[in-house]
Design a binder for these strands. Structure first.
Lengths: 105, 105
DNA sequence: TTTACCTATGTAGTATGCTGATTGACTAGT
DNA sequence: ACTAGTCAATCAGCATACTACATAGGTAAA
């Protein structure tokens, strides 16, 4: 059995936040309390390691909502399976973190 | 209003664990899932910053329980007040972390 | 129109955290 | 005798996280 790849507590917290629907940086910052200088570089590493993928929001949507465009993330298959194994190491993670209020169209 | 001194998420997690009664390194490691190389240096910094104080267990007690002596920590007054302010930044912390089963003499 | 605040993302430089190993005493199996 | 396992703490060297700041368009007030 290959040893599970390791994930820091902070990285795991961010991965879990995305999993629960906080699918862009600013939302992850708000729910975790982590600063931007932690969240954005961490998300780039998660993407580098193929645990998440990203896609820029269409400019037209951002324009319509009068705000900067967001970069949306979602878990890959290996991201989901790693998160499962991470619950065993950091059992605290699983309970924590509220899901976001889903925006209605 | 002087800006609240800052504490990393990990340091806050460790401080909270001690507050809840995980009063030596090994116990903090177990409840948080954090490795020894994170926990012990972090506790030294917390002590350096006067948020916690430490005291070595009497050798005779460790001998009686047939294990290495523990270094026990507790929060100082400023440690407790900082922890309060930290809950505002990391609201997730407050709910999380079980208290240890208290050992009976 | 400049001051301020909000959303959203990003960076440089440094402090902190993590991996992997080590120490030391004691316990138990082979 | 050796090997392996547990509890407790520590370290060197490298990876990650944090602070403070920056950018950029938007709103809103003075």
């Amino acid at each position: 059995m290959q040893p599970e790849p390791k994930l820091s507590h902070t990285a795991a917290l961010i991965l879990q936040a995305i999993h629960l629907g906080h699918v862009y940086g600013f939302s992850v910052m708000e729910v975790t309390g982590l600063p931007s200088g932690t969240v954005y570089p961490a998300m780039r590493r998660l993407e580098r390691d193929a645990l998440i993928t990203s896609k820029w929001e269409q400019q037209s949507i951002a324009d319509a909502e009068q705000r900067p465009p967001r970069k949306y993330y979602k878990l890959t298959r290996s991201g989901r399976s790693l998160l499962e194994s991470v619950y065993k190491r950091y059992p605290l993670l699983e309970k924590l973190l509220p899901s976001p209020a889903v925006e209605k169209a």
